[in-house]
């Protein structure tokens, strides 16, 4: 029983957490990929930027002596999401829109986004340094230890993990209703399916572009904040988080928000279960196994964790480039 609880703690919980973070990031990426038709390389740093905005707001409130029943960082995440969305629109106005209007090839936009990611990296590290920071400015995070009958080991869940899961569920439902019921959401799907046809039916593409950046930017901020609340805020995350999110986007099918959610959880679970030490779960069956149980039996050593999303990406690109949910191959 103890081993099962260990598996729940280390395998399932962390898979769910990292999966929802990847999913939140991948939704934005897939919408940008589908509507604006380029791979947005600056998404990882947009996440870091959002987390920093949250941290600054939280620190400001904590300095004023505000205390709330929820962690400050979670509460100020909502204004921070709005700020990040505005920043994302600003980045689009300054760097991507002129290129789009000049009729640049999509690959030039990809390159511009690489330039933007470097600029964001530079600015963030210039003002904040490279050390990692704790998002819980006012009080340490609460950890719940839930006793399980028949086991001495307890189920461990932290407060931000619960908040993250709730937030992901709410965000996904809200996004679903927005995309299927709201006028603008339907317009977004139309532009994603066929931009020319959408334009001649009178859809204002400008508004669609704005909506894309608002959703992408705010979800990126949420994902970044949640990730840094779960562990710590690391300013040097960018390229390491980018690869799993791209993998999730492509696995799910480009332009498919639901696919991105599924892809995010798939990549997250694959990653956690690949580095999970299986010998602990197998230990109760030690006598029945035909081989000696080694002390560490993970499929992938932790230092090669990045291999997992990459391999998923490669396999999908070879055998099913449209992704699970039949997205586009642009």
């Amino acid at each position: 029983m103890n081993d099962l609880v260990f598996f729940l703690n280390k395998g399932i919980t962390s898979g769910l957490i990292i999966g929802s973070i990847y999913a939140l990031g991948a939704i934005g990426l897939t919408l940008i990929f589908g509507i604006l038709r380029f791979a947005h390389f600056a998404h990882g740093d947009l996440m870091t930027l959002g987390a920093f905005v949250t941290l600054i707001l939280a620190a400001a409130l904590a300095a004023l002596g505000v205390t709330l029943p929820l962690p400050l960082a979670f509460v100020v995440m909502f204004p921070a999401m709005a700020i990040t969305a505005v920043l994302a629109i600003g980045l689009d106005k300054m760097f991507y829109k002129p290129l789009r209007q000049a009729g640049a090839r999509p690959v030039v936009l990809v390159m511009a986004s690489v330039g933007v990611t470097l600029m964001l990296q530079g600015v963030i590290r210039l003002f904040a340094g490279v050390r990692s920071r704790d998002m819980f400015v006012e009080a340490p995070k609460e950890i719940y230890r839930i006793p399980i009958p028949g086991a001495t080991r307890k189920l461990v869940v932290t407060e931000p993990q619960i908040l993250l899961m709730l937030f992901t569920i709410v965000a996904v439902i809200a996004l679903h209703f927005f995309l299927t019921r709201a006028r603008l959401g339907k317009a977004m799907r139309a532009v994603s399916d066929n931009p020319d046809l959408a334009r001649i039916t009178g859809i204002n593409t400008e508004h669609v572009v704005w909506a894309t950046w608002i959703i992408g930017g705010s979800l990126a901020c949420a994902a970044g904040t949640m990730l840094s609340m779960d562990v710590t805020l690391k300013p040097d995350l960018s390229f390491n988080i980018l690869l799993p999110i791209f993998a999730a986007t492509i696995v799910g099918g480009i332009g498919q928000p639901y696919g991105a959610i599924a892809g995010g959880f798939l990549v997250g679970f694959c990653e956690t279960l690949a580095v999970f030490n299986w010998s602990i779960v197998l230990r109760p069956f030690k006598d029945e196994l035909w081989f000696d149980l080694p002390s560490n039996m993970s499929l992938v050593p932790t230092e090669y964790k990045l291999m997992v999303p990459f391999l998923i990406l490669i396999i999908v690109l070879i055998y099913r480039p449209t992704g699970i949910f039949k997205g586009r191959v642009l």
């Binding site: 990929f33 380029f38 791979a39 390389f41 999509p106 690959v107 990809v110 390229f239 390491n240 980018l242 690869l243 791209f246 492509i250 090669y304 990045l306 291999m307 999303p309 990459f310 990406l313 490669i314 690109l317 480039p321 191959v329 642009l330």
Partner: peptide
Amino acid sequence: RSDYLAIATLGIAQI
């Protein structure tokens, strides 16, 4: 499309 090459080369370099 060329975006995929960018993603894949980025990944292979890190690996």
